[in-house]
Design a protein around this nucleic acid. Structure first.
Lengths: 241, 241
DNA sequence: ATAAAACCTTGATCTGAATCAAGACACTAC
DNA sequence: GTAGTGTCTTGATTCAGATCAAGGTTTTAT
């Protein structure tokens, strides 16, 4: 029927390789082998195709999701179809957890940006585990806190910074995440990037060109060479090209 | 010295009236009398004057704060002094908790908007309590989840809605919070309101006038009469006056 | 009651970036 | 290798709302 998930599912069910995978996830850091094994019986593995929806805003929240492979976006849409991306996540990251602890529905939608493997933990079982595993609860609190901090930065950017500053800040963040001061690789298309930092593809193009002309960067399709890191930093703070 | 707090402090220390106050706070809902008593020994009461800073962005996070009386704002400033308010909170609300679970520093600043009584719970003692009180941990997770949901709404508003829609949405939210469909009272000045919804005092004035002329509302200084709730709803969704 | 401070309103002007259109470039499927 | 699809770039135009200035109103302190 219309609601049947098209993506395939399978289970770890105590398998050693499953426990190994779960062990690499920051949320489960500090958990014992027993606890990880319990988790492996709860976990459902799902595979999504590029462009496939993982959940829709307003649908009932049913559990917590973790990216195992690939990349996903969490986003909201306006009534006339404009998209604001809240997060783009890769392996190890959790998402979809707001309704787990607060009830109600998903506050945003999620979609696979490329073929993605997702680990799903059903709500009731996960909440039960958290209650009996204080370390997991503390990790979850840390996770949500990090998310809150990220949102304050995003609100600050959207409200207090102009587009050039937001783009410069994004490139600097990417540079830190990719541990590379000289060159970064865009993990998403420029159109998706424009929806993440709150602008349009045309504006991204114009800003990249201006930043190139100013000697700050050199753009090669999806690879950006950082030529003047200090200049980029200054642009991310003051805003003016 | 420069860091001495000017606000006065006192303690509940097991007092019955203190336990009564703590019992009214949603975060402590479901806690036993013993647990509430333990909390009362941890809690520090502080009084702030209007305009007094509670904490500064970038300072080391030292604990969790709860509004007992009055009203506070949590905000960020740009380099040229523009302010974006993240939250305005009244009695019962918690704030300042991001660094408690994630370490690092306060991601934003906080200030009393009027004389305010604040309950402060030092970090180490609070974390210890959470570890030994699963119900408190679950309440905290629910609290942070609610905060995350609020932020997604704020990001959606800032990025996908124009100012008239944001103002209409704010009035509708106020109406729900104040349980009054016909009239709302602005809890903050119009200048502060402009910093909350991401615009300027001049624009707030112009929008209120236009909305008044369109028969949606009638403004009397800090009291707003809602004349066309459906119209306001439509404006909050479609955006166009 | 009055002065000072804080807040708000109105008018005029400016601007960053969205929108629309059109075409070029890159990638994918066959 | 080629056609189709998706993505990106460039030019021209428009506009929502910011900025600046000035004066009015409300609130607070004495």
């Amino acid at each position: 029927m219309c609601c049947r998930n098209r993506h395939s599912e399978n289970f770890f069910k105590g398998a050693v390789y499953g426990i190994k995978i779960l062990k690499t996830i920051a949320l489960f850091s500090g958990l014992s082998a027993d606890q990880l094994e319990t988790l492996s019986y709860i976990a459902v593995r799902k595979a999504y195709k590029r462009g496939e929806m993982i959940f829709h805003e307003g649908n009932k929240g049913n559990g917590i999701y973790i990216v195992e492979t690939g990349r996903i976006k969490v986003f909201k849409l306006s009534m006339d179809g404009k998209e604001q991306i809240l997060h783009v996540y890769g392996p190890g990251h959790t998402f979809g957890e707001v309704p787990v602890f607060q009830g109600k529905n998903f506050p945003a939608s999620s979609m696979a940006l490329e073929p993605a493997g997702i680990i799903f933990l059903p709500r009731d079982r996960f909440v039960k585990l958290i209650t009996s595993t204080p370390a997991l609860g503390m990790n979850m609190l840390a996770d949500l806190s990090r998310r809150l901090r990220d949102f304050t930065v995003q609100i600050e950017a959207l409200s207090l910074k102009e587009v050039p500053a937001r783009l410069a800040a994004y490139l600097l963040t990417l540079s830190r995440e990719q541990n590379n001061e000289a060159r970064v690789s865009l993990p998403i298309s420029k159109a998706q990037l424009s929806n993440l930092i709150g602008t349009t593809p045309e504006t991204i193009s114009r800003m990249f060109k201006k930043m190139g002309d100013a000697g700050l960067i050199a753009v090669q399709t999806r690879t950006i060479e950082i030529q003047d890191k200090e200049g980029l930093k200054e642009l991310s703070e003051s805003g003016r090209l």
